[in-house]
Amino acid sequence: MNPLLEAIYSTIIPSAPFIIAAYALVWVALFVFVIIAIKGFKNSEKQLAVLEEEVEKLKTK
């Protein structure tokens, strides 16, 4: 390769892992937040199911 071009592109390959890691970790952080929210919704659904059972029990009493 032309030594001048080699100098111009010298930081491209070494910086690639840092750029990939930066973008990947941002997406992971955002994804984790979505997972937490979904887990919260599922917990609420479970609690609602318990409440529905309790209401049914009270009706039959």
Partner: peptide
């Protein structure tokens, strides 16, 4: 980035510096 020892034509433009890919982080940062 830093200047290199000479000038090269890349995509029809004269380039005389080190090209910094790491700056791409800025667009999300």
């Amino acid at each position: 980035g830093a200047a290199v020892d000479g000038v090269e034509v890349i995509n029809g433009e004269l380039v005389g510096n080190v090209l910094l890919l790491s700056q791409k982080i800025f667009y999300f940062h």
